[in-house]
Design a protein around this nucleic acid. Sequence first.
DNA 1: TAGATTGTTAATCGATTAACAATC
DNA 2: TAGATTGTTAATCGATTAACAATC
Lengths: 215, 215
Amino acid sequence: MDNIGRISDRILERTTSYYHFLRKMSIEDVDYIPSNLIAEKLNIKPIQVRKDLETIGVIGKPKMGYRVNNLLKIIKDFLGWNSINKAIIIGCGNLGQSLLSYRDFKKYGLEIVAGFDINPEVVGNKNGNINIYHFSEIKNVITDKEPLLAILTVPEEVAQEVTEKLIQLNVTVIWNFVPVFLRVPKCVAVQQQDLAPFITTLLDKYEQIHKAEKK
Amino acid sequence: MDNIGRISDRILERTTSYYHFLRKMSIEDVDYIPSNLIAEKLNIKPIQVRKDLETIGVIGKPKMGYRVNNLLKIIKDFLGWNSINKAIIIGCGNLGQSLLSYRDFKKYGLEIVAGFDINPEVVGNKNGNINIYHFSEIKNVITDKEPLLAILTVPEEVAQEVTEKLIQLNVTVIWNFVPVFLRVPKCVAVQQQDLAPFITTLLDKYEQIHKAEKK
DNA sequence: TAGATTGTTAATCGATTAACAATC
DNA sequence: TAGATTGTTAATCGATTAACAATC
């Protein structure tokens, strides 16, 4: 998490996929792995793997490849998975609940410390050991828990309003799962989490394969 | 959905965000909008907006900008949101259920036609009007409904096994929400849906803003 | 007509790939 | 030593940005 700073999204994505693949290799007790094997499995070029690993700061051994466990350690560090940041979830409907109960966020540097909703059927419940508070209590909970970021999973109609409340309470890092455009000042970091483009990408991949087969 | 075919992910993402923003403008009865206004709101350069719109195939009017409703129509078509593809969801735990109940997939070209699980508490239930079947029935249901793609939301341990079953049943388009590396033949289109890199990106954005403020 | 904004052509920048020398 | 694979330096490619002419 040091030398990040305008690292391209593409490297981050590839690095995450290296991680998943290497974890598999580690479980299978593979000790060293060469770039061309990683590349082959992930369907990219070996030179790209080597370039990425260079960026990440891994050193390999000629003739051997890279040490799997070393790689895993450095990747985790590079992706910031070794430091934990506190998050709250606003909106505990279906999606909010499923993120609340996703235990693995901790692996990826995130700890969910509270949920919020206004539905009386949900408020007061616990998901694991995470309390779901009424949204009106948000000020106190934020003062208490000091979360760095908020995950937004509210209905479209209230997304903007909730965002403004968050900013007012000094939560300026927002992971927005609502498919809606948020107006925020420049000091606020918003990550728009939209599933829609992935559907298009996936169907496009399918068409490409289809086309190639016909030839 | 015509001239797609190796359109970059970056354009798809930006186009989706144009869509959300323009929908807002449309609701506010804005008729024409110039590229520099879109750019300003989305924090990018006007020339990039114009280049993207050119790629998408929109024609604007000098001095006026682009007609919002026309833009929305063309973007929807470009992103393939006007044709509907059938999908099944494998694994109806928390995440699977929340995807099942996400009614808006239809807007983005996807219709969920069935869910599958092995948990007796879940099998036989309905989510909206979508049945959840036992995984053992998958062959019949696929024959019946003919889905193009499968959404994978199963536990890590069984992801590979389930994938192989799907391929065997000729479902070769897979949207994988399981943070695990899948081995598949080249004729299968997999979209790895990993949330982890977005956390890193978001925290990175935050740090960049922080750094900039200090100066 | 003058001014604003598009659309096109060219320049720049960054990311990917290639070539090859270094090293185990 | 010979061979395989890394790491480095250079070439290519694609995406972004700039400059400006076309047009309403």
